[in-house]
C-alpha cells in the first residue's frame, strides 16, 4: 500500500472542524469516491474532528491518500494530547457521552467507514484512524 499524498490540518478552533470537512471532501473527490461515500467520509470526519476539539482540547488531522493495487482510499488520523478515554468500550457505545453530545460520534463514525482503529492512553491522549476505500 502506498501513500500518494499526505497533509496535516490543525484542529485548534471550532472553525477548523469546517476546514477539516472541506479538506476531506476535496480528497474524497480526488479519490473518485461516489457521492454517498464522500458524504459518509466527510460526516465521520466531522464527528471525529469535533471530538478532537472538544474532548481532546485540540490536536491534528492527518489525511493520507492511499493506493493499493488499483484501489484508491483515504485514511484520516485524528490525534490529540488530551485526557484520553478512561473506558474505551463504554465510549464506543451508541448513546453514551461524557459531555453534552448525543453519544453518536465514535460509534456513528465507525459505521460510516471501512476500517476504524482507536488508541487512547489515560492522561496522554487519543488517536483515531479511519479508512475508506473506493
Amino acid at each position: 500500500m502506498a501513500v500518494t499524498k499526505s497533509e496535516v490540518i490543525p484542529i485548534r478552533t471550532e472553525h477548523d472542524i469546517v476546514v477539516a470537512r472541506q479538506a476531506v471532501r476535496r480528497l474524497s473527490v480526488e479519490a473518485a469516491f461516489g457521492l454517498v461515500d464522500q458524504t459518509k467520509m466527510v460526516t465521520a470526519a466531522s464527528e471525529l474532528a469535533r471530538n478532537t476539539f472538544i474532548y481532546g482540547g485540540g490536536g491534528t488531522l492527518q489525511c493520507e491518500s492511499l493506493l493499493e493495487g488499483a484501489r484508491r482510499g483515504l485514511r484520516l488520523t485524528f490525534t490529540d494530547q488530551g485526557p484520553g478515554i478512561a473506558d474505551l468500550s463504554l465510549a464506543m457505545k451508541d448513546g453514551w457521552t461524557s459531555g453534552s453530545g448525543m453519544g453518536l460520534g465514535l460509534s456513528g463514525a465507525k459505521r460510516l467507514v471501512n476500517e476504524f482503529e482507536i488508541e487512547s492512553v489515560h492522561g496522554q491522549g487519543t488517536r483515531v484512524t479511519i479508512t475508506r476505500w473506493k
Binding site: 458524504t39 464527528e47 459505521r111
Partner: peptide, 14 residues
Amino acid sequence: MQPAVAITLVELGL
C-alpha cells in the same frame, strides 16, 4: 435533504 445525506444520517444512527 439530499439522498446521500439521508443515507449517511441513518447509518450514523440518527
